[in-house]
């Protein structure tokens, strides 16, 4: 009973916050509502005894990704008014499509109820985190390594994309060039003739013109 109440409370909060994410005028509000959505779904996940992922969601998403979002949104100077243009124009189409997708999914669930098969009998005596840990480091050890490489890739790409080597303020030193310098490269003796001034008489005007050669 209590579970049902909690489910509906969290569900309502989740749906409302999700709606606010897409409807809020200010992107910062969107981000904050998204955080709320994540936290609420984390609560729902805990109701399903998936505590490790629920915590990961909060730690990774709310703690890292959403803060990153918030940071970006605040950093960028966004003209909210132009961003909202076409919102009302798009609303009918968006509603239509969203409702069609929803209707389809719900109809699938209603007309073809999922038969629950007992595939693997999980041992309830072991906690969810423990089970997940076992699986991750035994059966899924290679995918875990792959995931770590993907994360590293994300890190490198993010840095590489935002790095600005062409910036005027950036100063570089080419060590090899500095070491390989020679005397002749430093000083060059140049012989220059003194500048001469030639006088040409412009016959039409009768004026003297100075032409430097």
């Amino acid at each position: 009973m209590l579970q049902t109440v909690f489910f509906y409370v969290f569900s309502v909060i989740l749906v409302i916050s999700a709606l606010q994410v897409i409807l809020a005028k200010n992107p910062i509000h969107s981000v904050l509502f998204l955080i709320l959505a994540f936290v609420t779904s984390s609560c729902l996940w805990i109701m399903l005894n998936v505590e490790f992922l629920a915590l990961t969601l909060i730690l990774v998403y709310v703690g890292a990704v959403m803060v990153l979002f918030l940071f970006v949104v605040m950093m960028l100077d966004i003209d909210i008014e132009t961003m909202r243009k076409g919102f009302w124009k798009n609303l009918p189409l968006a509603l239509c499509l969203g409702l069609v997708v929803l209707a389809e999914m719900v109809m699938v669930l209603v007309t073809k109820p999922v038969v629950v098969y007992q595939i693997t009998q999980t041992d309830n005596s072991i906690s969810n985190s423990n089970q997940l840990g076992w699986m991750l480091y035994t059966k899924y050890s290679y995918p875990v390594e792959l995931a770590s490489v993907i994360l590293l890739l994300g890190l490198v790409v993010a840095v590489a994309l935002t790095l600005r080597p062409s910036s005027k303020n950036a100063k570089y030193q080419n060590i090899a060039k500095q070491v390989a310098v020679s005397k002749t490269g430093r000083i060059e003796m140049v012989k220059m003739q003194a500048e001469k001034v030639e006088v040409i008489v412009d016959e039409k005007v009768g004026k003297d013109k100075e032409v430097s050669v």
């Binding site: 499509l97 389809e104 999914m105 699938v108 073809k112």
Partner: peptide, 15 residues
């Protein structure tokens, strides 16, 4: 893309 997803979904679920 989303239209495609919808069409695909429609077919896949054999509604």
């Amino acid at each position: 893309m989303i239209l495609g997803i919808i069409i695909l979904l429609t077919f896949c679920t054999r509604l």
